[in-house]
């Protein structure tokens, strides 16, 4: 396994007590694999990504569990050691390309400094490679555009630059946090296709965080569904989309409007995700779950095999449960 996350717990100490933002999150990513992570806002998707690259916003902190990259623990590394891993072994792509590039430096300079932070390259070599990367991500006239500033690029082009920046030190894993959310719909597909192609060519694994099921279905090999700081279902993307085992995932899939027939009402899940300081005992989804029963309200289900996926749901732990 390239990345293994085991029982990860992230806490935010506040004046009114400690909030647990992530609780018992476990998953792994194989080399070259694309893992999609979906869920509502506040479910902990981005938080998981931030914990992996070691950039949780203070006062957030990893309070338990471990993160391993190729078997080596990286969740407790000192800042400088983790810095050498960021960019070099784990790259990152953020949501809004308009704000992720430093407005005062040319894109070339930002690429060069990133490569030189991790690879022993001379200025000329780094510049040459930077032009190569801009070509790779599909920036026309890269040799001229390298000396342009971010504001001289459109949003879609800037996200291409961001992708080049994330890939330029050739990391094994990229944490892409909502990489297309801020883009025009027409450009989203291009960016996803680009990301997918480059990842395949470089054999880079991707953790693709998004709330867009369409992007996941198109891109990911496996998908993890998060709810209230936990993974409640994880499995191969086809299985999760077509044969969701957790009632929440099923609701999520049902809420995607079908294109091939008219529907009177869009399906929706009643209620809202609980706030972090008010997560019910037992299954966090139980107050909204259409199939809730007594056990759900008192005991918390862990991920368990359910059909072709793993789901955290007591429905799958009963004698004669639907498989």
């Amino acid at each position: 396994m390239l990345l293994e996350v085991k029982d990860l717990r992230v806490e935010f100490p506040t004046r009114r007590g400690v909030l647990t933002a992530l609780n018992g999150v476990s998953f792994s990513i194989a080399p070259g694999e694309v893992l999609g992570v979906v869920g509502e806002s506040g479910a902990g998707k981005s938080m998981t990504g931030a914990a992996i690259i070691g950039l949780l916003e203070p006062p957030g902190r990893i309070a338990g569990g471990e993160i391993r990259l190729e078997g080596e623990r990286i969740d407790n590394l000192p800042y400088e050691k983790m810095r050498r891993i960021r960019g070099k072994r784990i790259g990152a792509i953020f949501q809004d390309p308009l704000t992720t590039l430093n407005p005062l430096y040319t894109v070339g300079r930002q690429l060069v400094e990133t490569m030189q932070a991790h690879l022993p390259l001379s200025d000329a070599e780094a510049r040459q490679r930077a032009i190569g990367w801009l070509e790779q991500v599909g920036i026309p006239a890269a040799a001229q555009r390298i000396d342009a500033y971010p504001h001289q690029f459109s949003g879609g082009m800037r996200q291409r630059v961001v992708i080049a920046l994330a890939l330029c030190a050739e990391p094994q894993l990229i944490v892409a946090d909502e990489p297309t959310t801020a883009l025009d719909v027409s450009i989203q597909a291009q960016i996803i296709a680009l990301l997918k192609r480059l990842a395949r060519e470089q054999r880079t694994a991707i953790m693709l965080v998004t709330h867009d099921m369409g992007v996941i279905a198109e891109t990911a090999d496996r998908v993890a569904v998060m709810y209230a700081g936990r993974i409640i279902e994880i499995g191969p993307v086809r299985q999760v989309v077509r044969h969701a085992q957790h009632p929440y995932t099923a609701g999520l899939m049902a809420s995607i409007p079908p294109l091939d027939r008219r529907v009177e009402r869009l399906a929706q899940i009643d209620g809202a995700m609980p706030r972090l300081n008010a997560i019910p005992p037992g299954c966090p989804f139980s107050p909204r779950c259409p199939e809730v029963f007594e056990r759900c309200r008192v005991a918390r289900p862990e991920l368990m095999p359910a059909g072709a996926t793993d789901a955290a749901c007591w429905l799958h732990d009963q004698p004669g449960a639907p498989a």
Partner: peptide
């Protein structure tokens, strides 16, 4: 964001 991204790129402090 661009400072966070600079950290994520592994630039030195």
């Amino acid at each position: 964001d661009y400072i966070k991204f600079a950290r994520a790129r592994g630039l030195t402090n």
